[in-house]
Design a protein around this nucleic acid. Structure first.
Lengths: 205, 205
DNA sequence: GTCTATATCGGGATAGAC
DNA sequence: GTCTATCCCGATATAGAC
């Protein structure tokens, strides 16, 4: 209904942009309607005029985040390249997305724990289907291309290696890199190579 | 000052137990003093009598969580076993801790993003020193026991593989295991073997 | 559609009796 | 130390003028 990226922005678009920005940093309970209104440079009442409640606005923002991301992975997974290349591309694409949207992963993770059924619903609505991944890897195992690993473990491993370093960034950056922003960025960039390496070393037959 | 595990509990102990429980589930902004009071079966005023403010109470709970965990890893790291055994033991111990305290990792992760400097301060206070880990792995690389991998990447990989599956549990359990509690528990138990396997396959020279 | 003003509620925190 | 009552503020939400 609304294409957030358009400019010049309508009020509704401004609200959604602002809400995304603020929610994603402070979480659901952590942000006030006032903050969103300020960020969007309008007043509180308008928020309620466009979206009836905070919950509704929040749900909308959440939904948008997924609709944007999911299709990108389907493309890679449904291509006809070999597993190694796919893993490399998936990790690269995913890391890019995570880095470009710093705050989203932490936000989603918090939401996963606060209201898991809500997230699952949104994800299902966005077309997330883990079976798709599982079938992929099983095929490769049968071909003997990779050693027999439970696909569930493999998938969770890949996700872990991509997501966690971004989510834990504020801490890791301080502990390992003297809080040097650029050094950690460099570190994450390196991971686009080291993570597929790490995984491939582990699974090749 | 207060040993939380003692029984019969003093009021102060009851408060700390209750606060830990509620904070850890709902986060800092997500929980009200009323909730904590209810959980501890006392009234709000007493919370302020014992701990001057919500912030103070929260800081106290946070500190406690770390003081409890850190020493356990030092013991393993400072032993004189070989790397592979150490990794296996670290992963096992860590997974156990994470599983026994389901809500803590998500809580910490949220806090890392909400107020990173606070967490870092608490961790430093509890004696967390990443250099200890780094030195360990560098020694092994020089000995030729493992292939030359940047220790930062390796450490982050190990942490990722342990923590993420627990933090993302509410989602993963639903998506991959039909929300079957026991099946996911089984999955996490398996990871005590598959994760060290995965890592060791990746790093052995 | 956009604004101001206001209603209503819940939160943290304090005062003061016991 | 523990309770009740209350203060004060900020938050969501609504009413109604323009």
């Amino acid at each position: 209904m609304v294409k957030i990226k358009e400019i010049p922005q309508s009020t509704e678009e401004k609200i959604l942009e602002a809400a995304k920005k603020v929610f994603v940093i402070h979480g659901m309970e952590g942000t006030s309607m006032q903050q969103i209104a300020d960020e969007a440079k309008i007043n509180k009442s308008l928020l309620h005029y466009y979206f009836r409640s905070k919950e509704k606005l929040f749900a909308y923002v959440l939904k948008y985040a997924f609709k944007f991301v999911i299709p990108q992975f389907k493309v890679i997974l449904e291509s006809d390249e070999d597993v190694y290349t796919k893993i490399e591309k998936l990790v690269n694409r995913y890391m890019d997305l995570l880095m470009q949207n710093k705050f989203i992963p932490a936000f989603i993770l918090h939401e996963i724990n606060r209201n898991p059924d809500g997230i699952v619903e949104v994800m299902r609505g966005a077309g997330v289907d883990p079976q798709m991944f599982i079938d992929q890897f099983n095929k490769e195992i049968q071909k003997g291309a990779i050693r027999p690993i439970d696909p569930n473990h493999l998938i969770v491993n890949i996700l872990s290696l991509c997501i966690f370093p971004v989510v834990a960034r504020p801490l890791a950056q301080r502990l390992f890199f003297n809080n040097n922003e650029q050094a950690y960025h460099q570190f994450l960039e390196e991971r686009k190579k080291t993570v597929p390496d790490f995984i491939i070393h582990s699974i090749k037959a």
